[in-house]
Simulated scan of single mutants.
Amino acid sequence: MSLTKKIDFALIIGVQNANPNGDPLNGNRPRADFFNIGEITDVCLKRKIRDRLQENGEVIFVQSDEKKTDGMTSLKNRAESDEFGLGKKAFEVKKGADKVKQKDETKNLACQKWFDVRTFGQVFAFSSKDGEGSGVSIAIRGPVTIQSAFSVAPVNITSNQIVKSVDSDDKEGKNARMGMKHRVDSGIYVAFGAMSPQLAERTGFSDGDAEKIKAVLTKLFEGDASSARPEGSMQVLKLIWWEHNCKAGQYSSAKVHGSLKVNSDGSYELNNLDGLVPAEIDGF
Rank of each mutant, 00 (worst) to 15 (best):
G135E: 02
V155G: 05
V163Y: 01
V190A: 12
I140Y: 00
D170A: 08
Y189M: 10
D169Q: 10
E211M: 15
E211D: 15
L199K: 08
V184K: 00
M178G: 06
Q198G: 07
D170S: 10
S137I: 04
D209H: 05
P154E: 15
R183E: 12
S186E: 12
D185A: 12
F205C: 00
R202A: 13
R202P: 00
S165D: 11
M178P: 03
A215S: 09
A210H: 10
S134Q: 12
G179L: 03
T158K: 05
V163K: 03
Y189I: 10
T145K: 03
N160C: 10
I188A: 13
A153E: 15
G133Y: 04
D130V: 02
G204N: 13
F205P: 00
V144P: 06
K129N: 00
R202M: 11
N175G: 01
G187S: 10
R141T: 09
G208N: 15
A194F: 01
K129Q: 00
G133W: 05
T203F: 10
S134H: 07
D207I: 10
G208C: 10
A215W: 00
K181Q: 12
S159Q: 04
D130M: 03
A149V: 13
S159T: 12
V166H: 07
D170I: 06
M195A: 07
F150H: 15
